[in-house]
Structure formats: C-alpha cells, structure tokens
C-alpha cells in the first residue's frame, strides 16, 4: 500500500518544525544557545587564547569552528532525544506516530531531518557569535558538508537513545557520560596531535573527532575527504540503527 517509504516523513518534519518555531520565537532560546559558546570564546578565545597559536593561526580561528561542531552535536542530539522522551512519556504523542501507517524510514527521516534543521540553526547562531568576537573564516565547502553529516549522525544517535531510555534521568546520564565528554576530548579546544598517541588513536573512533578535522580544512583536501568519508560511514550506520530501533519499537 505504501509504495513510497518516505510517505509521512514530511508531516513529521513539519510538526517538529512548527513546535521548534514556537521555541525559536522566545528570546530565551537564542540566548541560551549562544551563551555557553560565547563564554568559551571570551574565556579561551580572547582571554587565554591571546598567548596561544594553533597550527600557525590564532586561537580564536581554531576555537570557533570547534564550538560550531560542538553546538551542532549538542543541539541535533538533544532536540531529538529529549523531544522523543517528552513525546513518549509526557505528551504521549509518539504513540500517535507509532499507530500511523508510516514506515520506520519515514519516521527516522522526519525526526532526523528536524533534528538537523535545529542543530544547524543553533550552529549558525554560534557562527554569528564567533564573527562578533572577531573570527574571520576562509570560506570552505568542507565546513557545511561536515556540519550536515554531523547533525545527521547525532540526530540519529538522539533517536536511538530517545527511544531506548526510560525517562529524562537516563537521558541526562547519556548526555553527561557520552555527549559532553566528546565535546571536550574530540578536538574542540585543542588539536588531537597535542595528545599522546595512546589517547588520540582511540579518539578517532568517535565521530566528533572527524567532524572537527573536516570543519577546519580550507577545502576538500585529502584530510577533509577522509574525515568526511568517516562521517558518512558513521551517519549511514547510525541512521540504519535508528530505523531498526523504530521498526522494533513496542511498549
């Protein structure tokens, strides 16, 4: 009956964006998205960073793309995972989606698409804050490509975790033990080459590391292509995992 596996994805996406628009309209959202990255920029970029040079550039030019990568991760993950938690346990609107004749692929496409949109808007806000702080980037296609893949894969993680957890506390645990540490260890604040090999090696198993590499490349260099390929592999695997979890969802 449903020849098109994506049928219904658009309605899910539109609803999520409708709900997001209501949040975006409140100044508190914009401020709270920008406040933490802005503090990092002031403390590390302007304060501490004056004495630091990384890879031949000033520290702010190193830091801002990293903060954008971190915002992309946090926002795409959080909106999807906590949104699903609220929809499952509080509003119970998730049950409506599960009872509708839409394929798991469509459910993932709609939710991940909305997570990406929200992650990218937050990232843009951080970029704007960076420009205000004096960041002057060289335009590079590697940056938007990395952000697209990164938001897709973290939104997919958000789906898996949002559907596997049993409430908000568990969600917070994942954020504190998985997502936040990635933000500190995957090259947001300093290049991984500063770390000893036994530590930097395993960190390449984490997706944010590759996002941070690709984000800072001046264009589609070999290094950028490798990092983008790794991100693509992560995204494909995690999207497949999300489809699998949705298909098996039962209460």
């Amino acid at each position: 009956m449903n020849a098109n596996p994506l049928a219904g994805a658009g309605s899910i996406f539109r609803r999520e964006m409708l709900l997001f628009r209501l949040k975006l309209a409140r100044p508190s959202f914009v401020l709270s998205t920008m406040i933490t990255p802005l503090m990092y920029m002031v403390v590390f970029g302007l304060g501490l960073g004056r004495q630091v040079r990384v890879d031949g550039g000033d520290y702010l030019s190193f830091l801002v793309p990293g903060l954008m990568g971190m915002a992309a991760m946090h926002n795409s993950f959080n909106w999807v995972a906590s949104g699903l938690n609220i929809a499952r346990f509080y509003h119970r609107t998730w049950q409506l989606v599960m009872l509708a004749p839409v394929s798991p692929v469509a459910v993932v496409a709609g939710n991940v698409g909305a997570g990406m949109a929200r992650g990218l808007i937050a990232t843009l806000l951080v970029g704007v804050a960076g420009l205000a702080a004096g960041w002057r980037p060289e335009p590079s296609v590697a940056l938007p490509l990395a952000l697209l893949l990164e938001t897709a894969l973290f939104a997919a993680i958000g789906m898996v975790i949002g559907l596997k957890t049993r409430g908000m506390e568990e969600h917070t645990t994942y954020t504190n033990f998985v997502i936040t540490p990635m933000g500190f260890f995957c090259g947001t604040f300093f290049p991984l080459s500063n770390l000893p090999g036994w530590l930097s090696g395993p960190l390449h198993l984490l997706p944010l590391t590759h996002a941070n590499i690709a984000l800072r490349q001046p264009g589609l260099t070999a290094e950028a292509l490798w990092a983008l390929a790794a991100l693509t592999a992560f995204a494909v695997a995690l999207l497949a995992a999300a489809v699998w979890v949705v298909a098996r969802y039962r209460e």
Partner: peptide, 8 residues
C-alpha cells in the same frame, strides 16, 4: 491537520 497528514 498533523494527524490527517500523518495518515495521508
């Protein structure tokens, strides 16, 4: 509207 669209 969301419900109607979801059910196409």
């Amino acid at each position: 509207t969301f419900h109607a669209r979801l059910h196409r």
